[in-house]
Amino acid sequence: MPKYGMVIDLNKCTSCQACVTACKVENNVQIVSEDDAQHGRAMFWMKMLTMEFDGDYPNIKPKTLPRNCMQCDEPSCIKVCPVRATYIREDGIVAQIYPQCIGCRYCMANCPYTVKVFNWDRQAQPKEVEKTYNPDVSVRPKGIVEKCTFCVHRLQDASEKAKAEHRELEPGDYVPACVEACPVDAITFGDLDDKKSDVSVASRDYRAFGLLEELGTVPKVRYLNAIE
């Protein structure tokens, strides 16, 4: 069984936010009203965080970091869920079961990365958006929690396709939308257990680090530090 992981090279990342947009479109993430967005209810599974600002105004260089779900090996969200609306798959993906969620938001309170987003209400989406909904991903109702799933529907697609073609799933068959969209190939994705895979090699690079690793959550999304 493979163990899917991701490495994001901050040296290559240009903070263009293509991954943010690609993720939002791919996963039918709700577009909230302006009011709600100002209130801090904007929904993103992939989010560009500004970690710190270098230099003085006007020559500011912000250091950014694209953050999706860390797909922890020891996820703190799963421990506290009272109904098993979130669970860890054998391939390491921390998945959500939307019809199960009761909306208690305990997982949100316990995620040290604050990756979970809640459907505070359900608003009418722009017509153009409704036309381009991804049929592979369910549209979530109001009152439940959601988050990045490493585009698990793509894995399903890819494995079904491989099965139909009577072959094994090959690396590159399955990549999440953010990886695909990145114009500078800053994101590598694949099987962490396969020692020869790009992602596995990159995750053992001397620049590699995990976000808030010290908490013992064992994130499977790792970063390569930006070095001038």
């Binding site: 421990k79 506290v80 869920c81 009272p82 109904v83 098993r84 199960q100 969620c101 009761i102 909306g103 208690c104 938001r105 305990y106 809640f118 459907n119 109702p141 109001k142 009152g143 439940i144 929690v145």
Partner: peptide
């Protein structure tokens, strides 16, 4: 406080005793 109070019965059908809730 629940987002989906209509699903409250999930706690009885398939609650998980390891959750502090």
């Amino acid at each position: 406080d629940l987002g989906r109070p209509d699903r409250i019965l999930h706690l009885f059908e398939r609650g998980r005793l390891q959750s502090p809730l």
